[in-house]
């Protein structure tokens, strides 16, 4: 199966799973249609479209197995999926840290970590650059938003800062 088929399967599973969840939603006396009416329409359409996508994928596979080999993805430039994984992980860490250590600390750690992941610093000078720019990012955004623009930023439960 190709990407389409897999994507179709995931969507189909989601649609069916959510359809099951629409059972037993409480009805209201004011609204002639319950809260399950519209979701069911959407989910049924989603299930049908996903099934069609899977079918199209399988059918294409059979019709053009030989052709598929020829049209395999052009040897595109190598993609750095490892870095994508690291970015998501560092970002997730940031999201988890935020409520505990607050915006200023978490942002400093996040920017420093991600910058060094993208461009591993070598030597004290480059480390200093990374740390200073991370500090600047955290400090400047904090001051601009909280002090000048009255936008509240998350505070840390542990640090109360």
């Amino acid at each position: 199966m190709t990407r389409d088929g897999i994507a179709g399967l995931i969507c189909l599973a989601l649609a069916i799973g959510m359809l099951v969840l629409t059972r037993g939603l409480p009805q209201s006396s004011f609204v002639p249609l319950g809260p399950d009416f519209y979701p069911r329409i959407v989910l049924v359409i989603m299930a049908v479209l996903s099934a069609l996508l899977i079918a199209a994928d399988l059918w294409q596979r059979r019709a053009g197995a030989a052709l598929a080999a020829a049209s395999a993805e052009p040897a595109a430039e190598r993609r750095n999926y490892r870095l994508v994984g690291i970015t998501f992980a560092v970002f997730a860490g940031y999201v988890i840290l935020l409520p505990f250590v607050g915006y200023r600390v978490a942002t400093f750690i996040f920017v420093a970590a991600l910058q060094s992941a993208f461009d591993p610093p070598r030597g004290a000078r480059r480390w200093a650059m990374v740390l200073i720019s991370a500090l600047a990012s955290a400090a400047i955004t904090f001051i601009v938003f909280q002090h000048y623009l009255s936008v509240l930023l998350p505070r840390g439960k542990w640090t109360d800062w």
Binding site: I132, L135, A136, A138, A139, I140, F142, I143, Q146, H147
Partner: peptide
């Protein structure tokens, strides 16, 4: 950039001196 960062850092730390309620924005 460095000067700005240092100035920012200074503001950053002094803004946090503990004071009586209310010492920070109220939501």
């Amino acid at each position: 950039v460095l000067t700005a960062a240092v100035a920012g850092l200074a503001l950053f730390t002094f803004a946090n001196v503990q004071a009586a309620y209310p010492d920070r924005p109220i939501k």
